[in-house]
Design a binder for these strands. Structure first.
Lengths: 148, 148
DNA sequence: GCCAAAATCACTCAAAAGGATGACGACAGA
DNA sequence: TCTGTCGTCATCCTTTTGAGTGATTTTGGC
């Protein structure tokens, strides 16, 4: 997030310099201030939208994650139970993919991380769930409302 | 979302008018153009961020809205589907125990058979389901109504 | 800017799981 | 009686998974 603000500032600076230069080109024309202001307004509006999107993208993902629903109970609150068990989002993500029957290698490829990373995450989630096997982890995950 | 753009435009217009007015106040000062541009940049940056947030929040809503209701059948008909897939009772029995998270050894002890026997049964049931891993077999078994 | 949590990756070793194949007895039905 | 299915068990070999440990980088909150 820090980086985004930094990039934002840099681009802003560059654009200001650019507009400062263009200023001398348009200053001779009537109503140049309006044009100048309009340009600045437009560019910074675009930049602002971009920044806003950047900043909220993370939240977007978590919102999408709480989708599935079972017939009996609504199943929307994985977030609460997840944190109660001290399981991170990434770990839950791995658990979900395990529940779909994917191997560690497949999960690694899907998430663009190494197989070792997947193993670390799964080991931790097994530990937190008290499971010794992935099938058991899936079962426990469903019992505790982490999985649909 | 349309409304946001509209509001955005309106606020933008009002602000431009406002800044136009302030312009006459600050125009007498040196470097007023810089100040003017800076003001416009700042306000529209803020507005842009706000718009970006608004837009993504709207996206969030739609994402949450697409909550599917997985059809919940009461689950009574394993017998029919079992035979349709050519899976024997014993094989289904092993599959059920696998779904509970038990290891081959535990299953063997529970059923009083050798671990090798469990492995042959599970291998056959995997083959009939088209699964390569036990987690996948469990998933497929549930999809096909063999497991609750 | 600092700090804690989270995420990433690596390495080793052991255990579990899976594929392939063969075999044998029980039993039901043609 | 012969045949096919089912359940049982084994052996060999490969792949997958899990445990344990340590390390680095990102991220997020204060």
């Amino acid at each position: 997030m820090k980086r985004h603000v930094l990039i934002y500032g840099l681009i802003g600076g560059v654009l200001i310099t650019l507009l400062k230069w263009t200023e001398y080109r348009f200053l001779v024309i009537d109503h140049s201030i309006e044009i100048y202001g309009g340009l600045i307004a437009a560019t910074f509006a675009v930049l602002g939208v971009w920044l806003g999107l950047k900043l909220t993208r993370a939240q977007q993902r978590t919102a999408v994650q709480e989708v599935p629903v079972t017939a009996g109970q609504p199943f929307v609150l994985d977030e609460r139970k997840r944190e109660d068990l001290g399981i991170t989002r990434r770990e839950l993500e791995i658990l979900e993919l395990i529940a779909r029957g994917m191997s560690n290698r497949e999960i690694a490829q899907k998430l663009y991380v190494s197989e070792n990373t997947v193993k670390t995450h799964s080991s931790r989630v097994f530990d937190k769930l008290g499971a010794r096997r992935r099938t058991q982890a899936v079962q426990l995950g469903k019992e505790r409302g982490l999985l649909p």
